[in-house]
């Protein structure tokens, strides 16, 4: 059996929508099974280009695989034409898929130390397979913390998974929301504000961060304040993509192409570009 990766990199492989979970009004999680080929392997943090026929293509992070490892799982928020088409599919529909692409999270580098995952909103999607990896190899890591910021208690993505990570894997999972009513017993506030109180040893910690860029900027400042060196802070960057294989330049970010040099990038490599508005 060939794998989907053997095909021409510009030619999407046909996948079928095997299941759909509506997370919120504008967010769905899709499980996609390849047709007639084996699903290629992926590393946590990579993305696929999902193509809805007749509409177009968008980069979407791989947020997991199904139990029999047959398919890819993707979470999509509808913001424009392609994501809206992806959010409106039915079971059995065909979707074109190219990938996986890009560099993932530094999970081997993080072994034998503490990990701090920091996610904002849908930024939890590309971190989810990294957290599942830690869960499968829990003894390789020391203290593991997940700080997750979202709008309100009704928009907690993967709430059941977060509960399971806390229970099964001794992961210190803190969800913080921007606002809540007085019945909420959890944390309220911006996610970077949680870093000072998180249990990690800055001398042996790797931080993996994904969320809106403004949130990542403040998160990096708090991590540096806490004593974490820039080279152990990793961010997943987002720029619009076209070819996804480093040819077209659409995703250029300074001297890097996010599609092949990223999306996960070390902060010390992008520090001088990170707050430049024009890039």
């Amino acid at each position: 059996m060939t794998t989907a990766q053997d095909a021409n990199v510009f030619e999407p492989t046909v996948y079928r929508v095997a299941s759909i979970v509506r997370e919120f009004e504008d967010v769905v999680t899709l499980t996609l099974h390849p047709e007639g080929v084996q699903r290629p392997a992926f590393t946590p943090g990579q993305f696929n280009m999902l193509y809805t026929f007749g509409v177009g293509e968008a980069a979407i992070s791989i947020c997991g695989e199904d139990e029999d490892q047959r398919g890819f799982v993707h979470t999509v928020r509808q913001v424009g034409a392609v994501s809206q088409a992806l959010a409106s599919v039915s079971e059995g529909d065909a979707i074109g898929l190219r990938g996986p692409f890009g560099k993932g999270w530094p999970l081997s580098e993080a072994e034998r130390g503490d990990i701090v995952f920091v996610a904002g909103g849908l930024g939890l999607a590309p971190l989810r397979p990294a957290i599942e990896h830690v869960l499968r190899h829990r003894s390789r890591y020391r203290r593991v913390t997940l700080l997750f910021g979202t709008r309100n208690p009704r928009t907690i993505l993967y709430a059941k998974d977060i509960e399971r990570w806390r229970r099964q894997a001794d992961i210190n999972g803190v969800v913080t929301v921007d606002h809540a009513d007085a019945g909420w017993r959890g944390s309220v506030g911006a996610v970077p504000a949680l870093i000072a109180g998180a249990p990690f040893d800055p001398r042996s910690t790797v931080a993996m961060v994904c969320g809106p860029e403004v949130m990542m900027r403040f998160t990096v400042a708090s991590l540096l304040d806490a004593g974490l060196p820039a080279e152990r802070i990793h961010l997943s960057m987002e720029r619009n993509m076209k070819c996804a294989i480093g040819l077209c330049g659409r995703c250029q970010y300074g001297h890097d192409f996010i599609c092949k040099d990223g999306p996960v990038m070390r902060y010390d490599r992008l520090a001088n570009r990170f707050s430049v508005r024009e890039i």
């Binding site: 928020r77 909103g121 849908l122 930024g123 606002h179 969320g211 809106p212 949130m215």
Partner: peptide, 13 residues
């Protein structure tokens, strides 16, 4: 101020 930006609502991530 970061809370006021309502970062997560209208964003894809």
């Amino acid at each position: 101020r970061i809370q006021l930006f309502d970062l997560y609502g209208g964003q894809a991530r």
